[in-house]
Design a protein around this nucleic acid. Sequence first.
DNA 1: CTAGCAGATGTACGCTGTACGCACTGCTTG
DNA 2: CAAGCAGTGCGTACAGCGTACATCTGCTAG
Lengths: 224, 224
Amino acid sequence: MSAAAANTEGVRVPLTRERAVHAAVQHADVAGLEGLTMRHVAKALNVAPMALYRHVANREDLIDAMIDVVFGEIPLPLGGAAWKPAMRDRALSLREALVRHRWAIGLMESRMRPGPANLRHHDAVIGKLRSAGFDIAMVAHAYSLLDGYIYGFALTRMNMPFDSEAEMDAMAQHMFEPFPANEYPNLAEFVNTHVLKPGYDYAEEFEYGLEVILDGLEAALGTD
Amino acid sequence: MSAAAANTEGVRVPLTRERAVHAAVQHADVAGLEGLTMRHVAKALNVAPMALYRHVANREDLIDAMIDVVFGEIPLPLGGAAWKPAMRDRALSLREALVRHRWAIGLMESRMRPGPANLRHHDAVIGKLRSAGFDIAMVAHAYSLLDGYIYGFALTRMNMPFDSEAEMDAMAQHMFEPFPANEYPNLAEFVNTHVLKPGYDYAEEFEYGLEVILDGLEAALGTD
DNA sequence: CTAGCAGATGTACGCTGTACGCACTGCTTG
DNA sequence: CAAGCAGTGCGTACAGCGTACATCTGCTAG
C-alpha cells in the first residue's frame, strides 16, 4: 500500500480536518468519549495515528471541533416566530442532538475554545429573546433556566439507554440487588409503579418540564 | 521501611477503603477527575499503587464510592417542614456539594452501582414529596425538573471557576479573540453588559430559576 | 530532471489501569 | 513456644494511551 492515505477502494482521498472530525464524531457516537482514541479514529480513516496531528492540534482540539459539529446540527431560531415556540423548538432540537451525541453532554458549555457554530447559536438565541422584549437580566434568567434544564435532563438520562422495558427492568433489579427489600420503600414504589410502567416515555417528561419553565418565564416577563 | 503501610510519623495506620476513598475525594477536589490516578491517590496515602486494589475493585469502583461520599454530605429532608422549603434546602445543599466537588457533576446520576447514601437520599426526597400530596406522576415531573435544573446549572457553570472579575474578563477576551468584532453582537452585548458586570453572582441566578420551578410545581400541584 | 515541500509515517517516551504472584504481618490455634 | 493461616501491602510486567520528533514519500514548480 502506498504511503499516501487511501480508502478501501484504493482511491486516494486526502485527509482533511473535516474528515477527521466527522470520523471522530461517528466513532464517539458508537464508542463514547472514553472509546475515542486517536488511534481508533486514525484506523477508521485508514491512516496512521500521527497523521491526524497534521490537522488537529491534539485530542482536546479535536473534541472542540466535534462539539462545534453538534452545535451546527441545531437549527437557528431565525424566523419571525414568537419567542416561546422558538425556544421550545430550540430546546427540542438541542435535546435531539444530545441524544444523537451522548458524548457531547457535559462538554457543550464547558469548552474554552468555542467554535463558530457555538457562538452563532448563542448569538441567535440571545437575539431572539432580546427582540421579544427580554431585557439583559431576563435573558440571563431565561438562558440559565432553559440550558440548565436541557443539559441537566440529558445528563440525568444519559446512562439510561434502555430501548426495551425488559432491559430497564433488569437494570433496576441489578441496582437494588445488594440491598434488603423495603429498605427504600418510596424509591421502590416509584421505580416499580412509574419508571417500569409500560409506555413510560422520557420525551414526554422532558416536554412537561419545558412547558413549566416557558410558562414561568412568560409570567416573569409580564410582571417585569 | 517495613512492608506495612506507615504514615509520615512512622505510626502504622492500616489502609482502609474509607481512607482510600477520602484521599481520592480530596485529590479530585484539587486535581479534577482527569488528575485522579490510582498512582496519585496511592502516593497521597504513602502506599504503593497496587495496595489500593485490596480495598477497591478498580478505578470505577473507587469513583462509585466517592460519589456516595458526596451524597452523604447532603442533609436528608426529614423534618416536618413543608415540601417547598424542604426542596429548596435540598437543592441548595446539593448545589453546594457540587461546587465543593466539581468532579462529581455528571457522575451523580449516572452510576450503575448507586451506594447506600445515594439510595437513601432519593428515598427521602421521594418520601417528602409523596407525603406532601404529590402523586407518582407528579413526583416524576418534580424530580425531573429539579434535578435536571440543579445538575444542568452546575454543569454549565462548572468550567467557570473565576474567582476574580479580571480573570473572567480575560477569559472572555480570550474566547472572542479569534473572531472579528461585531460578528456576534447579541452575544457580545450580553457578555459585556451582564456577565462581566461587577457584582454578578451565579448563586443569585441559580435561586431565581429554582423559585420559578418551585412555583410552577406548586401551581401544577394545585390544579391536579 | 531536479529541488522543494507538504503531508503521512514509524519510532519512541512517559504515562495510565491493573493482572499476577510473592512477602510480610499479626492472630489463632495446638 | 511453634505452626499455620488469613489478611494486607508490594514489585514486576504489560497493553494501551497521547504525542514529540525525525524521517520518508510523492506531488508540484521551475
